[in-house]
Each structure stands twice: as C-alpha cells, then as structure tokens.
C-alpha cells in the first residue's frame, strides 16, 4: 500500500523548470531510490515532499496528508536528512540531538532515551559529549542522519547522505539505513552513485533534467538493456549495409537494437550465444568492426541508454 503518492509535481523558477511533472508512489516499508546526475531535480523533489519548497503545481500526499495543504501535519511525520551537515558545530552531538528533539516537543526521559538509542545506532554514543566540529566527515553524516530520526518519522527523506565520506563510513551509513528500514520506516534515498542505489533500493526512479525517465525495480530497469547482456559495436564504414540491423535483429537471442554515439547496442538473452551469428552477419555484409564490447547491464549503462550521456556528467 503506498505511503507516498506524488502527482505531477512541478517546480519552476522563472524560466527554469527544475522538476517537470514527476509522479510516483512509494510503498510502506520500501527504500525508494532517486538516481540522477547533479541538477537532475532530485533535491528539488525532496524539498517539495519535505514541505521546504511549495510545488509550482501538482501535489504529493504522505500518509493521507497533502504537502501543499497540510504542511504542518506532514512535518510531524517526516524526517529529513539534508545534503548539508545541518548541525551546530560548536555544540556536542548530544546537545544537537536534544535541540532538534525539542523542536518536535520531545523532552525529559523520552528524549534522553531516544538520543541514546540513536547515538548507539550510529555508533557514536561514546562520543556524545564531543563537539560536532571535532568529528570526521563520516561521523558528522551519521549524526546528521540521527537528527532526522529523533521523532520516529514514518517517512525518512535522505538527500545524498554519503557525499564526501570515506568507504568505511559509507558502509556504516548503509548498515544504518537497513536498520532504519527494518524498524518500519519508509525511505526515499537520492544519490548520483548508481552502486548505492543498486545496493540499497527496492525501487528506483531515474531522473534527468527534471523528468523521471524510467522507474521500476532494479531487475525491471536492467531488463530494458537485455537480460543476457549487451553487445556494443562500432562498425566501419558507417551505414555499410542497408539491411544490417534487420539482419542482426533476426539472429538467435537478440531482443533489441539501439543507437548511441555512432555505436550499435545489441541487447540479447545471452550475449555469448548471440555474438557469433552477429559477427557472421557483419562478415557477410562486408562490414568491419572498429570496436567491440560485451557487458552486463547496469544502471550506468541504462542511464546512458536512456539519456545519451553518462551519469556523472
């Protein structure tokens, strides 16, 4: 059952459309991933869902509450972990958490207990009285995440929570996210690292230039490229044979053919089996191969396939 439903969300700044009609649903208990390059509109979408920015049009409903009309109530059930380290550097880890807890009317023993739980969750309980400014980047990220969880939010929005952290801290953050998911919290996770989204997310939406260009489970998304891999060919001379593509498409296991940057991307059920007949077709038609690559489908390749550019551009 969906906890979150976004319906045609649009955010415009004068001439610029940062988010252009994005719609999706997030099921309860799911980790929903937003993947896209910087500037794709991921953070703006999170800002609208978190009530930080009002949508120019469209709406989103979280647990039955509209972000445009019931923002105050929405704020009580969501937790936000912003991309910035939104902490007070001269205060200690515990002082930061207590302050943010009090913003949600928490106090007394409940707040003390919750702070301890979260500091133990992010494994910083023994550093609770250290100033945040003395922490490493990874430790700050973990406290930043804990601050968004104090009030037991039903829906947690994580905006690129691993930016600038070392691999060890990243692993630690991943473990924490799984623990949060296991406690029943629904999570929206944005990243421009495909490995993170592949590892963490149950459902993935790919964004580019303010639009959602694809969505589905990892398996569903990668099947677009062919379950058995992709044969990438650069052929000389270009257009060497008019009926080449039709001839390749008719070979055993080939599921689709696409063009990208002068290359042919041949998806198949089993690229190892499909390769010999494809090469035979090329030989028969008098074409030569300048470049040949066989790869297993991944989100990076899918993004290139969908947008014609690399994810990190």
């Amino acid at each position: 059952m969906p906890l979150v439903t976004a319906d045609n969300l649009v955010k415009k700044y004068d001439e610029l459309t940062a988010v252009d009609g994005v719609s999706f649903t997030i099921d309860e208990g799911q980790i929903f991933g937003f993947l896209g390059p910087n500037g794709a509109g991921k953070s703006t979408t999170i800002s609208m869902l978190s009530t930080y920015l009002p949508p120019s049009s469209g709406d989103a409903v979280i647990d039955g509450l509209s972000v445009t009309h019931q923002a105050e109530k929405v704020r009580n059930i969501i937790g936000v972990v912003p991309q910035d380290i939104a902490l007070y550097p001269t205060l200690t880890a515990l002082q930061n958490l207590k302050f943010y807890g009090k913003m949600y009317d928490m106090g007394g023993e409940n707040l003390d207990k919750r702070c301890q739980e979260l500091l133990e969750l992010v494994e910083l309980w023994d550093r609770r009285d250290s100033r945040v400014e003395q922490f490493s980047g990874g430790m700050k990220r973990r406290i930043n995440m804990a601050a968004g969880l104090l009030h037991h939010p039903r829906f947690l929005l994580l905006d690129e929570p691993t930016v600038g952290v070392d691999p060890q801290s990243r692993e630690h953050i991943f473990e924490t996210i799984f623990k949060i998911r296991d406690s029943g919290t629904t999570i929206l996770y944005t990243s421009h690292y495909m490995e993170e989204v592949e590892t963490l997310c149950d459902y993935i939406a790919i964004m580019d230039k303010g639009k959602m260009v694809a969505s589905g489970t990892l398996h569903e998304l990668l099947s677009v490229l062919g379950e058995g891999g992709v044969i990438e060919l650069k052929i000389a001379p270009p257009g060497c044979h008019a009926g080449l593509e039709e001839a390749i498409a008719g070979q055993n296991g080939v599921t689709s053919i696409n063009h990208q940057d002068g290359k042919l991307l041949i998806s198949s059920k089993n690229s190892a089996h499909s390769l010999p007949p494809v090469l035979k077709v090329l030989e028969d038609t008098g074409c030569t191969v300048d470049h040949l690559e066989i790869y297993t489908p991944n989100l990076e390749k899918l993004f290139i396939h969908l947008t014609g550019k690399e994810l990190r551009e």
Partner: peptide
C-alpha cells in the same frame, strides 16, 4: 549551512 532549513521542515 542548512540548520535553518532543518527547522523549516520541522513543525516550527
């Protein structure tokens, strides 16, 4: 630094 933004998405 974003701490004000964090307060804005809290019920404050």
């Amino acid at each position: 630094k974003g701490t004000l933004g964090r307060l804005l998405v809290a019920p404050v």
